[in-house]
Amino acid sequence: MFALLGLTPDLFALFVVFGFMVGVFFGFFGMGGSFLVTPALLILGYSAPVAIGSSMAFVFGTAVIATMKHHDSGQVDYRLGALMFVGIALGIEAGSRLVFGLEVLGVAEAVVGVAYVLVLAAIGLLFTRSALNDGDETGGDGDEANDETDGETGGGDEVPAIAQKVQSYEVPPMMTLADGQRASLWTISGVSAGVGVISGFLGVGGGFVRMPAIYYVIGTSLAAAVGTSLFTGLLSGGVGAFTYGRAGVIDLGIVTALLLGSALGARIGSGATAYVDEDDVTVYFGLMLLVASVAVALGEAAAWLSMPVLDRVSFVLLVGSALFVCATILYHGALAVRRERGPSPSP
């Protein structure tokens, strides 16, 4: 079976474990699904089109699973998702053409790698700074931190102030969203195209950009933003998988192994959100992304300087940091379950 999928048992097992870790992040944070996969594949020596194409197909499969879960809770705005799909599809086409063009020039790996370093570092800084600020403002109490967040947005189900300001510029044509809010089609188109270009170029699902963009720019409730983001992730992942599939660069062995792990990890990560205070681990997630950006930079340096040892250091950093955060989530989850269900509270 492994021979049919074209992977050695060791590599297959590695992808299952890595997929599990990514699934835990996806389930717990609602983002972070794929932007670890593409760098890992690049570090393992796969070409940029194979790494991005396989990552796209993996995102598509994970989004199918996640959307099925959110559909049951009625958290998906299908009309908004379908509209965003148009802009995202055009953006992905532009982004993937850019990658293939860079491949012809022989610089795709370098450019995608550098872009990854910058994106990972930026998101890592955002997460870390946000988590540390929350800790400072509330004295590290997670519940208070949540209250603060709710206060800024007027409650978890309300539209944030930024989105209200964007919605106040009524540039026709306007459309009514599933939760009653109104948004300009120009805003929706711009957000969609931008997310699509990032998806196609970096081979990421774009959830870490898409979900906040729907919430903060288009302006829906948080629950609808997550569900709709997952649905558009499904559509954009499908387009990306089709585009790269036509080029014959999707490795089904990699996708299958990753999905085997991520489907389980996503369930556990989703379950952990009911027990673990997100602020307890967000700072680790931010730091992990910063470490990942260093890892990708080392991977690029290994190629430029012809120093294979940097490749190994890079891979250990990437997997090690992901493993650490995954273990932290599971550890906090187990502690919380013990506190809530144990015979006596821990001292």
Binding site: A57, F60, G61, V64, F242, G245
Partner: peptide, 12 residues
């Protein structure tokens, strides 16, 4: 490409 997508959906 459609076959790949079909396999991924089935697996999911």
């Amino acid at each position: 490409a459609l076959a790949v997508i079909g396999v991924v959906v089935l697996e999911a």
